[in-house]
């Protein structure tokens, strides 16, 4: 799938400020914007035309009522986001989704939360093998399906 080049209508500074509010500092890590994740958010959002359209619309809509967002204090920024969340839940949902996805694929975050960072395949996981004795009790029940 093609990756779109970010365009001028999406300000990295705004995305970064949004990220800082959405995902604050934790442990030894700063907030998501200060981790420098805005660039990756914009890059990844361009990975599908439909999502890119949703994302740019979200940013444009947010900017239309919050042109001074990056200059606000933290509490006022939170208020602005909460208002956007209530007024435009679908657009806000797209912003939140991409923010969480980018944050939780970062190796620094994996280390902090103790997650083994990898795609699910090809490595997979290890599980305790099937043990038929778990059925000891279930097997005692008489058949109860309805005969016709």
């Amino acid at each position: 799938m093609s990756t779109r080049t970010p365009n001028a209508e999406v300000s990295e500074a705004v995305v970064s400020a949004l990220l800082d509010c959405l995902i604050p500092a934790a442990g030894n890590l700063p907030s998501a914007g200060n981790m420098g994740l805005a660039t990756e958010v914009i890059r990844l959002a361009g990975g599908q035309p439909r999502f890119w359209g949703l994302f740019t619309r979200a940013i444009a809509t947010f900017n239309s009522t919050n042109s001074e967002f990056v200059k606000l204090t933290g509490d006022d920024q939170d208020l602005a986001i909460r208002s956007f969340e209530v007024d435009h839940p679908d657009l806000f949902g797209a912003l939140l989704d991409i923010s969480y996805i980018v944050y939780y694929k970062d190796p620094r975050v994996h280390e902090r939360i103790g997650w083994e960072g990898k795609p699910p395949q090809p490595d997979g996981n290890v599980m305790t093998p099937w043990d038929e004795s778990v059925l000891d009790s279930a097997r005692k029940r008489e058949p109860f399906w309805r005969r016709v």
Binding site: L44, I101, K118, P122
Partner: peptide
């Protein structure tokens, strides 16, 4: 198989 599997899953 993609590092971006969570994004791929929703797009």
């Amino acid at each position: 198989a993609s590092p971006d599997y969570e994004f791929e899953m929703m797009t």
